[in-house]
C-alpha cells in the first residue's frame, strides 16, 4: 500500500465553546496508481482529511504510513512528503504571486532545493503538460484568463513531481471544455502511475473518472467502493444527502416506471446498452 491510514482522529482546537471533532477514527488505504474520489456534503471532513495527507494538519491520534513509513515518526522529513504528495487547493489560482508564469511554477521545485536552472526545467515541463504554451511563460499570471490561471497553479504543484496528487474540487468554476481537459490530464497522469485523490461535489465527475469512491459523513467514512457499488445504494445516499449521478438516476427512473433494466451503471455507453436491451426485451414479450 502506498498510503496506509489507521484510526485517524482530529479535533479542531476550539475557540470559546464548541470543539469540532472533524475526523473520527478514519481507517483507509490507497493503492499506488489508483484514482479515488472523495464525496460528502460541506463540513463532512473531506478537506480536513486531505490536509492530513501531506502533513499540514497533524492528527490527535492514529497513524499515516506513506510508503511504509510513518509520517509522524520523529525523523520523518516532512518537506519530502510535501514534494511526494502534491496538494492542489480549491481555487488554486488565488495563490499565484510571482511576476511571471514560469517563476510561479518554479517556486515549488526551488523550495525543494533544486537550483534555478533545474527548477525552471521542471516548471517548463509541468506547464507544457497542462497546456500552457511557451509564449505565456513570461507573462504575468494575473493577465491570464481564469482557466489558464487554474492550469498554471496546478502546474506549480505538478512541477514538484509528486507521486500522489490530491485535488480539492479542482473543477469548480471551470467551463465544460476546461473541465474535460483537466480530467484527461488527470487520467493521463494516472496512466503514468501517479495516484490521484480527488475531492468533488459532482457525482457525474466521480462516476466518470474515479475507480473508487469514499463518502465522508460527519467525520467518518461511511461508504467505500466502486462508483457502481456506492451509487446504487440509494437509501444510504438519501440518508447522507448525496445524489446519484444523472445517468444512474435516469436508469433508476426507467426501472421505477416498470421497465426491467438489469443493473445500474455509471458509464454512458454501458447504460445505453442496458436500457436498449431492456426496452427490446419489453417489446419482444
Amino acid at each position: 500500500m502506498l498510503i496506509d491510514i489507521q484510526h485517524l482522529n482530529y479535533t479542531y482546537p476550539s475557540s470559546g465553546g464548541v470543539s469540532v471533532h472533524a475526523l473520527n477514527d478514519i481507517t483507509v488505504s490507497f493503492e499506488a496508481g489508483s484514482f479515488t474520489a472523495i464525496a460528502g456534503y460541506s463540513g463532512s471532513g473531506k478537506s480536513t482529511f486531505v490536509r492530513h495527507l501531506n502533513g499540514l494538519l497533524r492528527a490527535d491520534s492514529g497513524d499515516i504510513r506513506f510508503q511504509g513509513e510513518s509520517i509522524y515518526g520523529k525523523k520523518y522529513p516532512i518537506s519530502r512528503l510535501r514534494q511526494k504528495v502534491g496538494l492542489v487547493f480549491q481555487y488554486p489560482e488565488h495563490q499565484l504571486f510571482c511576476r511571471t508564469v514560469l517563476e510561479d511554477a518554479a517556486f515549488g521545485p526551488l523550495n525543494m532545493g533544486h537550483d534555478r536552472e533545474t527548477a525552471e526545467q521542471m516548471a517548463r515541463r509541468a506547464l507544457e503538460r497542462v497546456g500552457i504554451g511557451e509564449e505565456l511563460f513570461s507573462s504575468s499570471p494575473y493577465e491570464l484568463s481564469g482557466g489558464q490561471m487554474r492550469r498554471v497553479a496546478i502546474a506549480g504543484v505538478l512541477a514538484m513531481g509528486p507521486e500522489v496528487l490530491v485535488l480539492d474540487e479542482p473543477s469548480a468554476g471551470l467551463d465544460p471544455y476546461a473541465k474535460r481537459q483537466l480530467f484527461s490530464l488527470l487520467k493521463e497522469m494516472q496512466g503514468e502511475g501517479v495516484t490521484i485523490i480527488l475531492v468533488s461535489h459532482s457525482m457525474e465527475e466521480i462516476a466518470e473518472y474515479a475507480d473508487r469512491v469514499l463518502v465522508f459523513y460527519g467525520g467518518r467514512i461511511c461508504m467505500d467502493g466502486s462508483p457502481e457499488e456506492v451509487f446504487s445504494n440509494k437509501e444510504e445516499l438519501d440518508r447522507i444527502g448525496l445524489e446519484m449521478p444523472q445517468i444512474m438516476e435516469c436508469m433508476w427512473r426507467i426501472r421505477e416506471a416498470g421497465i426491467p433494466v438489469e443493473g445500474l451503471s455509471c458509464s454512458e455507453a454501458a447504460a445505453e446498452e442496458l436500457i436498449l436491451k431492456a426496452m427490446k426485451g419489453g417489446s419482444d414479450a
Binding site: L87, F89, F97, G108, L110, V157
Partner: peptide, 28 residues
Amino acid sequence: NIIMDAQASRGVDFYSGNVFRRMGKMMP
C-alpha cells in the same frame, strides 16, 4: 490560513529561519 497551507504544500516553511528569512517568506 488557506494560502499558508497552499504555499506550505509547495514547500515553504514559514516557521524556520531567522527573522529576515521569515520576512522574505511572507511574499508568497
